[in-house]
Design a protein around this nucleic acid. Structure first.
Lengths: 340, 340
DNA sequence: TTGTATGCGTTATCAT
DNA sequence: ATGATAACGCATACAA
């Protein structure tokens, strides 16, 4: 049925006995071509198995229908679900996705960004928290871009993510409602945006409950499993034990669980622990982690919708979108015992 | 420094005061151009920030320097590391990677395959175990392709993966050396290639040790956590308890661990359990899983090397590459107790 | 409604 | 050693 070489528009034109212009029109502006001609063309397309050569098309049009997604780590448990959201939305609008895996290497990021210069990609989704360094020197024109998950530092690129503060607020209220008062906040580094925002949610909740600042226990932490372990040790040394640990993310929470278990405590009987993000492991660990779920697919959806919108106008709209995340109640929180 | 529009070869030529032909040569055949001219050109390139328009290049050349990687599930813990191997090797040869996420949907696979027709991709890495259905109807010419991780059913596409039989053999020998004799094999479905191969390793090891076939316990299973749980129940009902469970993969092993733990046993004191693949969770679960590690990055490397080779010849070589995997000893195996 | 002809940015052939 | 030019496949302005 088909030849060794992919069919071109010319092959179709010859078989349909029309000009290539008519074929092109029949495809892109069917209403501008006579019904009978259109049918001939469609038949010829079916016969040849013709597919428009995307490269030639983009070259001619000066823009493509691909969106470049830059991610430092494909293995990130957040990534694959966000990607699904991105893809579904893109597909619905006739766009395709091109994934650039930078492995955190700015040089690779730069490499992929060349796609944009070649018009191989019409827009950019940034999953990296930054524009690959050196891109500004390459060209002054940054194409329509949207950041997901974390905002791009020092830029006006619109950003789609969750409302960290609202999420943290939900969590702290859950803990307070469970009867906890001495609740430690285990962070991931004072300067980080997520830290600041989630901490703000913690404070707001504590404020609303009338718990004085001096009764709040804050550990800076670093957001890793090891950091969670360390936080436990610090608190034991300081002898300022809380009844609950509200952790900046699931990794830290897992560290806390591990640290507490290693010291011979039983959870959640002796301590309550909460995470944030809802990574896959969160439901595996014992006790399963009460956490805040990242609405990953929704983030992907919104981000792509935003990008495609600004592609239409040609004019990016700088409004961030913050989705309010859900509390996922599992087994790691109970009422505090009177024991201590 | 740079204009709003990406610089073209013509811009460079104008600034360097040479023809575009010379610019192209200076880039691709530097030895064919006078040193002084070359310097002028390089300077002009630096000034303009010129980057070759990959689309125009591919259009003209009839081939691109991108490799399409088709994967059903980016979130697969195996994928990201294989990808790293693929990328590194590709990069070393001046190729880039384009990831097509099919979500298991043949239609999407087909969509991405159009890239090949458009010469947007020069070759194909299949992570899917099959060619997207319908592609054959689209074109008879399948481009150079290599399958990773699992072979493509009913095709001659070369395949790079691990030597399942050798891996399983390593595992069974480890178990035997630890003193186990009644070792159950928990599979993932009789027909599956991995099942057949790993079972072969199990049998070979048992044979070599002189353990008669009637003393071998085989559970067909399905390779999931739930399947592992079920296998435990089956064996309890049949009252043919082994001292060790050799599972077809880590998921099944985790299921076995969960099932055994739920019944009140302590591991590895009461039973030894082994996995296969070494997924991230394998080291998290308690007890940490003794398993066979997939050399994922190596698989990626080899696969891409093979693909690029066959791209050179234009002629795919049909030799599969099987890497012998390593045994990872963790905490889930001890000598059997005399208890039972 | 349809066809002719031009150009998108490259590379490669053929002159010079 | 260098330059002029054709062609890759397509979309579209313009002509018919």
């Amino acid at each position: 049925m088909s030849n060794s070489q992919p069919a071109t528009i010319e092959d179709v034109a010859r078989i349909a006995e029309v000009s290539i212009a008519t074929v092109s029109r029949a495809i892109h502006n069917p209403e501008k071509v006579a019904t009978t001609t259109r049918q001939k063309v469609n038949k010829a397309i079916a016969i040849t198995g013709y597919t428009t050569n995307a490269m030639a098309r983009s070259l001619r049009m000066g823009r493509s229908n691909m969106i470049l997604v830059l991610a430092p780590d494909i293995g990130d448990p957040n990534f694959s679900n966000i990607l699904i959201g991105l893809e579904n939305e893109a597909r619905a609008h006739g766009y395709g996705i091109l994934i650039g895996h930078t492995q955190g290497d700015p040089e690779r990021g730069l490499e992929y960004l060349k796609f944009l210069n070649s018009n191989q990609a019409a827009g950019l989704i940034l999953f990296t928290g930054h524009i690959p360094f050196g891109y500004q020197a390459m060209t002054t024109r940054l194409p329509p871009a949207v950041a997901v998950f974390e905002p791009v530092f020092g830029s006006t690129i619109p950003y789609v993510g969750i409302d960290d503060t609202a999420g943290a607020r939900k969590m702290i209220e859950h803990l307070l409602a469970s009867g906890h008062r001495r609740i430690a906040f285990i962070g991931d580094g004072r300067g980080k945006l997520g830290h600041i925002r989630r901490r703000a949610g913690y404070d707001a909740g504590m404020d609303a409950f009338g718990i004085p600042a001096r009764d709040r226990i804050i550990v800076e932490g670093d957001g890793t499993i090891e950091g969670g372990r360390l936080a436990v040790e610090q608190l034991f040394v300081r002898d300022t034990l809380p009844t609950a640990f509200m952790c900046i993310n699931d990794a830290a929470a897992i560290g806390v669980v591990l640290g507490l278990t290693a010291r011979g405590y039983e959870l959640p009987r002796d301590f309550s622990v909460t995470g944030f993000d809802d990574v896959p492991q969160a439901s595996f660990i014992n006790p399963s982690l009460t956490t805040i779920r990242q609405p990953r697919t929704a983030i992907g959806n919104k981000a792509m919708a935003l990008l495609l919108e600004s592609l239409g106008d040609g004019m990016p709209r700088p409004d961030d979108i913050l989705i309010i995340p859900d509390l996922i109640v599992r087994g790691s929180v109970t009422a505090p015992t009177a024991k201590r």
